[in-house]
Computed example of a mutant assay.
Amino acid sequence: MKWYIPREHGAWAMLIVPYWTGAMISGFHWYHLLFFVGLFAIYFAQAPLLTYIRNKKHTDVWPSFSIYLAVGTLFILPFLFHNPGLFWIGLCIFPLFLLNIYFAKTKRERLFLNDFIAIVALSSLLLLAYRITEPALTSEAFLFLFINVLFFTASVFHVKSLIREKKNKQFHRQSLIYHIVIVLISFAMNWIGAGIAFIFTLLKTALLPKKYFARPIQIGVIEIINSALFFVIVITVYFVS
Rank of each mutant, 00 (worst) to 15 (best):
N226K: 09
I119L: 10
H172S: 13
L125G: 00
P209A: 03
F157R: 12
N226L: 15
S26T: 06
C92S: 14
E8G: 10
F103H: 12
G38H: 07
A118R: 06
K210Q: 15
A41I: 08
A45G: 01
F116Q: 11
I182D: 09
S123Y: 01
L96M: 15
V183K: 06
I192H: 13
H82G: 00
E109N: 06
L69Q: 12
G72V: 05
L39V: 06
E223P: 10
V221N: 09
R173H: 14
L34Q: 10
M14G: 10
F79W: 09
S124C: 07
V221Y: 08
H29P: 03
A45H: 01
F35M: 12
R108Q: 15
T201Y: 11
F35P: 10
G193I: 09
L208R: 13
L202I: 04
V237E: 05
V232S: 11
T73P: 04
V221C: 02
T59M: 10
V240K: 08
I147V: 15
K160V: 08
K204R: 15
L145M: 13
T73C: 10
V159Q: 02
S161N: 00
P216Q: 04
T236A: 15
T73V: 14
A197L: 11
M14R: 09
F213V: 05
I42M: 12
V183H: 05
F200G: 09
V232T: 13
N114S: 14
P78I: 08
V120L: 12
N148I: 07
P6M: 05
G27L: 08
Y102I: 12
R110I: 10
F200V: 09
R108F: 00
L49C: 01
K160F: 04
K107A: 12
K169S: 13
P84L: 04
G27F: 00
L113Y: 05
R173I: 12
I119P: 11
H179L: 11
L122N: 10
F79Y: 08
G72K: 02
V181L: 15
V149D: 03
